[in-house]
């Protein structure tokens, strides 16, 4: 088990010292390889807080998180020998806004910044920058450009390349596609799927977009008011009961499929996780 949450609670305090429970009693396991997880929940449900526990940016106030064998807990916080950096190399976390991390003069230097912090040689870091810029779908001419003159979508890709260059085992992305146009969004999701498939990494995506959840995820985590209320496959998630209780949006594919089934008075057999599948099935049914 790469990441293991054991009854994790997290309370934070506002400026007046009033406590708020952001996470309550979370127990959860994430494997080192083979997972494609989406983490969903309304704003303020604790999604981002949960993600920040995955690479020890936050220390739980209750319970403990084991990350690649290192125990993170309130009691262990005082231990001076506890090194958090190796954990952050293994679990790469990409923040929502690339502007939070881009700072070097060139894209190449910025991508190389992470690996160098973990003791990778200058030369090796440059090699990785070259490799990763291609993986995120940009070409090497970008390496010498300034990260500040890029479009929003390009900045996102560069920030992801910067984390990938650390060669983490697990990649956690906080709302990676927000604000992108449909083409940019789909292209980026394909990049994540390839990272998962070709580089055999576990990918965790925080998102509000149920279409992403339904089309890509193998596993969904649903947060609600600090609690983990669902941990399972996306196909079972969107039952009428769950949709109502957890105020979920139904993915377009499922919504349209259900409407058509009802309209035509038919039942479409099998799963239709993407547009192509759904259209083929409808075609079959109508011919």
């Amino acid at each position: 088990m790469a990441i293991k949450f054991e009854r994790v609670g997290y309370e934070y305090q506002d400026i007046d010292g009033k406590g708020y429970l952001a996470l309550a009693d979370i127990t959860l396991n994430i494997n080192k390889t083979g997972e494609f997880i989406t983490l969903i929940g309304e704003t303020g449900s604790g999604k981002s807080t949960l993600a920040q526990h995955m690479n020890a940016l936050l220390t739980p106030t209750e319970g403990r998180v084991h990350i690649f064998g290192v125990k993170i807990s309130r009691e262990g916080k005082k231990d001076k020998n506890l090194k958090l950096n190796p954990i952050r190399q293994k679990v790469g976390l990409v923040f929502q806004f690339p502007e939070y991390q881009l700072f070097e003069e060139t894209v190449g230097n910025d991508i190389a910044f992470g690996p160098k912090n973990f003791g990778v040689s200058e030369k090796e870091a440059e090699e990785r920058a070259k490799k990763m810029i291609n993986i995120v779908g940009l070409d090497e001419s970008y390496l010498s450009r300034s990260p500040f003159n890029l479009s929003g979508g390009e900045k996102k890709r560069v920030s992801i390349a910067g984390i990938l260059a650390m060669e983490p085992d697990i990649l956690v992305l906080d709302e990676p596609t927000s604000g992108l146009d449909p083409l940019g969004r789909n292209a980026l999701l394909k990049v994540f799927y390839e990272i998962h498939q070709k580089l055999d990494k576990t990918v965790v995506i925080i998102t509000h977009d149920m279409n992403t959840v339904y089309e890509y995820a193998k596993r969904v985590l649903v947060m609600r008011e600090g609690n983990l209320v669902y941990d399972g496959a996306p196909t079972q998630l969107f039952s009428r009961k769950n949709v109502k209780n957890w105020n979920l949006d139904v993915p377009d594919i499922l919504k349209v499929r259900r409407a058509i089934e009802e309209k035509l008075g038919i039942t479409i057999e099998g799963e239709t996780r993407n547009k192509a599948d759904l259209m083929a099935k409808i075609g079959e049914a109508l011919r």
């Binding site: 449909p182 377009d252 594919i253 349209v256 547009k275």
Partner: peptide, 8 residues
């Protein structure tokens, strides 16, 4: 223009 049709 990098956009897509609504699913229906």
């Amino acid at each position: 223009s990098n956009l897509e049709l609504l699913l229906p």
